[in-house]
């Protein structure tokens, strides 16, 4: 009798891992899967059933092409700039130096600051009598009689440059931390071996360090790209609404300002398509699809 009870108890206990994850799964179904699926339905559902009219509307909207163009221009340039600078900095500081932990806290600041604070920093910075110009005057780099008007309307190329600087402020430290973590995982012996065999610093970097750093580089690039596709708050705070339209702004605009739920959903679906493509690429490159079923490896 006790033996039987034991068997029953063991059986019950073997389901333990599932009991513990069932709440999470139910939650995901209720508040993620159902909304996500109904978002797809929303974008394709007209008054008389299935329709493509919302997407046709989006494809006829000149703002859509602008938004798409600006979003991707921003993505490509800002991710490239951040990556190159962050890699340079990470390589330079990949040693144990005094004050490293304080420095890491400083590097965390832009990552954890609210987007509004981030927007306020650069909106007050780029204003004609803002802190960027003031700093340049104090440094003797600008004539106080002729402050630069950074935000002059319609100078899209200049705006893009300003946006990339602001975004570098926010994104560069996070890319640097990911790369630094990767660099610290690389055994110093590889570099020493390369040096003994006569490799120059540049050769070591190109043939040893960068290939070993590849997983971290992929992580950093794709995470930044996913973030860049969804840029929105900072743009409206600095440049105003729809002056430099981007995809998320259009989704929010149609949904919230015009109460066109289906158009908002259509835009959201387009953003989703881009982000999911990037995410799957990331998961595939990082080898997550062929991971072992193990106990917390």
């Amino acid at each position: 009798m006790p033996e039987k009870l034991g068997g029953w108890k063991t059986r019950l206990a073997s389901y333990y891992p599932y009991y513990l994850i069932i709440p999470a799964i139910l939650y995901y179904i209720a508040f993620w899967a159902i909304p996500a699926a109904s978002g797809v339905a929303l974008a394709f559902q007209g008054p008389k059933g299935f329709t493509l009219r919302y997407f046709q509307y989006v494809l006829r909207d000149p703002y859509f092409y602008q938004a798409l163009g600006y979003t991707f221009t921003f993505l490509v340039i800002s991710v490239t700039v951040e990556f190159i600078l962050a890699l340079a900095v990470a390589l330079l500081i990949n040693t144990n130096f005094k004050g490293a932990s304080l420095f890491l806290f400083v590097a965390l600041i832009p990552m954890v600051l609210p987007e509004i604070s981030y927007g306020a920093i650069w909106a007050t910075g780029y204003a004609q009598h803002g802190w960027v110009n003031s700093l340049l005057v104090h440094l003797g780099l600008m004539d106080p009689a002729q402050p630069m008007s950074w935000l002059a309307y319609g100078k899209i190329a200049r705006w893009m440059a300003l946006l990339i600087v602001a975004e570098a402020w926010r994104g560069l430290p996070s890319v640097m931390i990911i790369l630094l973590a990767g660099l610290q995982g690389i055994s110093k012996e590889y570099g020493e071996a390369a040096r003994i065999f006569g490799a120059t610093g540049f050769q070591t970097l190109r043939k040893i360090t960068l290939p070993l750093l590849k997983p971290s580089i992929q992580t950093a690039l794709i995470l930044r790209a996913i973030g860049a596709v969804q840029i929105f708050v900072i743009i409206t705070v600095i440049f105003g609404h729809r002056n430099l339209p981007v995809l998320v702004e259009e989704a929010v605009y149609y949904f919230r300002e015009l109460h066109q739920k289906q158009l908002g959903a259509a835009y959201a679906l387009i953003i989703m398509g881009i982000v999911v493509t990037l995410s799957v690429l990331y998961l595939w490159l990082s080898g997550s699809f062929k991971g072992e079923e193990g106990r917390g490896e």
Binding site: F31, P35, Q230, A265, A268, V275, L278, S279, Y282
Partner: peptide, 17 residues
């Protein structure tokens, strides 16, 4: 991981509806 990376707007809009 996938749910974490899924864009917020694509869930927030239909969830609001």
């Amino acid at each position: 991981l996938f749910v974490r990376m899924y864009p917020g707007v694509a869930v927030a809009i239909p969830m609001a509806v």
